[in-house]
């Protein structure tokens, strides 16, 4: 099947005067990870809640695995897992107790619910803590438990709303590993995040949303290419600044900015200029450079650039 697993078309949602979503479109192919990026209040959680049947859109529609989230909510629920922005587990129960309870509520037989709980605890490294109440878990363990609670029924589509917010780098890495494993099993994942490196590591495709609309989509590389590479040059002698400005201006086609008396930087269009070419050009003009560096923009820069704009890109 080549039909996308998650499709949203023209979703609108308002809360009073707040237009949380204004015509959101999304499409996530089967077996891929879609990263939804957006600043606070962009509408990420609102979108996830609609897709997970927790809330109805004011306009537009969405389908999960071909089923409409409003009219066929029951069928959608049987195929999805949702890990919300906060770990939604019963703190007073043990990890095992939680998994068993949610297994029973997913209508597994008692035996299957117990077996599935043990399988998941074992596979995701929570067996040692299985019989401790969740109150005593670290933030990372709690998120992991929350994540595996979604996996009891082996969902086709998994919604993860900021799965690693507030975690230390190590716990974050562990969650990332878990997500990768799921994708290897064929699960389709829609993940919202404010961490660009998270999207960079995990997502096959990214949708940047702001003010309730998708303002850019693409693979991480495509998005980075839209703003070009960044060239930083540090001069040995500040006196060479004007000459260096001219050289870089010609190469980049835009005015460089001086960040210091002896330092300037410019964004290069994605033309495939290599570092060696740049050094040679500077040399020709008699500019001695102490340091020249060319680097891909981080997704952060892409993100800041995109979300500062008023009008949608493309």
């Amino acid at each position: 099947m080549t039909d996308p697993m998650v499709v949203a078309e023209g979703l609108h949602k308002s809360f009073g005067n707040t237009h949380a979503l204004r015509g959101l479109d999304l499409s996530v192919p089967r077996g891929t990870v879609c990263g939804v990026l957006g600043p606070n209040g962009a509408g990420k959680t609102t979108a996830v809640r609609i897709l997970a049947t927790l809330s109805d859109p004011d306009a537009g529609h969405a389908r999960i695995a071909g089923y409409d989230v409003v009219r066929e909510a029951g069928k959608v629920r049987a195929r999805i897992g949702l890990a919300g922005q906060y770990a939604a587990v019963d703190e007073k129960l043990t990890g095992r107790g939680n998994l068993r309870m949610f297994g029973r509520l997913s209508h597994l037989s008692r035996r299957d619910a117990h077996r599935r709980a043990d399988e998941l605890l074992e596979r995701f490294g929570l067996m040692d803590a299985a019989d401790r109440p969740v109150v005593g878990y670290s933030g990372g363990m709690r998120r992991r438990l929350d994540l595996i609670t979604c996996l009891i029924l082996r969902p086709d589509v998994l919604f993860l709303d900021e799965p690693t917010t507030g975690l230390d780098p190590r716990s974050r890495g562990e969650i990332w590993d878990s997500i990768r494993e799921l994708v290897a099993d064929g699960t389709t994942v829609l993940l919202t995040t404010q961490y660009l490196d998270e999207a960079d590591h995990l997502a096959d495709a990214i949708a940047v949303i702001d003010h309730g609309q998708v303002i850019a989509t693409g693979t991480p590389d495509e998005l980075k290419a839209t703003i070009g590479d960044r060239l930083d040059v540090t001069l040995e002698d500040p006196a060479a600044l004007p000459t260096a400005m001219t050289v870089l201006n010609t190469l980049a086609g835009t005015e460089p900015t001086t960040t210091d008396a002896d330092r300037l930087s410019v964004t290069l269009p994605a033309t495939g200029l290599r570092l060696a070419d740049i050094v040679r050009e500077l040399d020709h003009a008699g500019v001695a450079a102490a340091d020249v560096s060319l680097r891909r923009p981080t997704l952060d820069e892409v993100f800041l650039r995109l979300t500062n704009r008023e009008e949608p890109v493309q």
Binding site: L54, R77, L82, G84, A88, V89, S106
Partner: peptide
Amino acid sequence: RGVMDRFRSMP
């Protein structure tokens, strides 16, 4: 805590 939402999103 979102537990209610989890219940609601389950079949």
